[in-house]
Write a protein that binds this DNA or RNA. Structure first.
Lengths: 195, 195
DNA sequence: GACGCATATGCACCTTTGTGCATAAGGTGT
DNA sequence: ACACCTTATGCACAAAGGTGCATATGCGTC
């Protein structure tokens, strides 16, 4: 039932329609929690049934009427209650790692291409997070309620950076050349960050 | 259908029973892919129906007979085929990040306690990965077929290290004291690794 | 002797997630 | 005129994942 709570968390910011929530899940909170619009609409109905959100219909012309969902006090309490229990660490569950595990039975060229694509993907995300950080929190400071968002972005940067470094290492190791050696202790390599 | 492929990947090492696979999913490959025994047995039946694995019954006394599953050539081909398509990056989906996002509506003491528990958890995992690395790959070298396992462990170390550093940062920022400031560029802090 | 633990397999149910499709209207491009 | 994108909501079905329970037995231990 974590998606429901993620939606409640979004609605603490401001009331939103399902459509807006879907977009939010494509950007800010969606960086670490993917959900498409069907899931969100379904979950919203459930939350409404439980009384955690309240829907207000806004009549529109030309477009279908929209339902603006507001967090109720019950919803806020439910979120607080949920947040009070210890979280459990999520597992990584990445296809690529399964491929790596069975590296002996895998086409190496495809694997290398895959890692290269991933490298770009994670570089992109790292850059995106850094851009958002610089824009939303230019002094590295935030009001209390926004501290979590700042920290989430910083985790994003750290995580993507770690994966980027790993992709680079993997490509080097798998390049065939110095294949089986020259692995250096982690955290020693050149570091081109904002140094 | 990724769990099925993860099982096939495990079986490239050697034939195993469902029970052994469940244990494997608790240790090596399970560091990044959790699955309990029910899931594994279910998936094994499916894989057998598809002809990707073959079951051989081994009669035992005192214990229920066991079914040793062997990867068939069809299974190996299916794995290869699956591995050839580009992987898609997994999202993080961590409860803790949702809590952080809604930080204004959350009990701060519980949140801090949660982060502290996580810090320990990730430190443990980092240490475990480093221990396994040192034991299985003492020279940082591996035969081709094992390179993926080495790299996976090194990703594990990198990932856990990133999260550990973030937990420390989060605790500092949320400690109330210098609450809203003193965030330094990432990748600059003291680094107590094997330096 | 009762209790739990390791070995070994599995069913049934429920929740969560993913995919495809449907509706509805205005705007933009060709 | 027709195709396609954006806004806005939703159903139906299938696949995947998680929880609890059931079975069977030998071994150690309290």
């Amino acid at each position: 039932m974590a998606l429901g709570d993620a939606i409640l968390a979004c609605l603490t910011e401001r009331p939103m329609t399902g459509y807006e929530l879907a977009k939010t899940f494509d950007t800010s909170i969606g960086f670490f929690w993917k959900a498409d619009h069907q899931q969100i609409y379904r979950e919203l109905s459930k939350l409404r049934d439980r009384g955690h959100v309240q829907a207000r219909e806004v009549v529109q012309t030309g477009k279908p009427n929209k339902l603006v969902y507001t967090l109720t006090s019950e919803g806020r309490a439910a979120l607080k209650h949920w947040a009070a229990r210890p979280s459990r660490p999520a597992s990584i569950k990445d296809d690529l790692l399964v491929r790596m595990f069975a590296l002996g039975d895998v086409d190496m060229d495809a694997l290398r291409a895959d890692i290269m694509a991933r490298l770009e993907h994670h570089r992109d995300r790292q850059a995106r997070f850094e851009r958002i950080l610089a824009k939303r929190f230019p002094d590295g400071t935030a009001a209390h309620a926004d501290l979590g968002k700042l920290l989430n972005l910083r985790l994003g940067v750290r995580h993507e950076r770690a994966v980027v470094e790993w992709c680079e290492e993997a490509l080097e190791v798998l390049s065939g050349g110095a294949a089986t050696s020259n692995v250096t202790p982690i955290g020693e390599g050149p570091r081109e960050g904002k140094a």
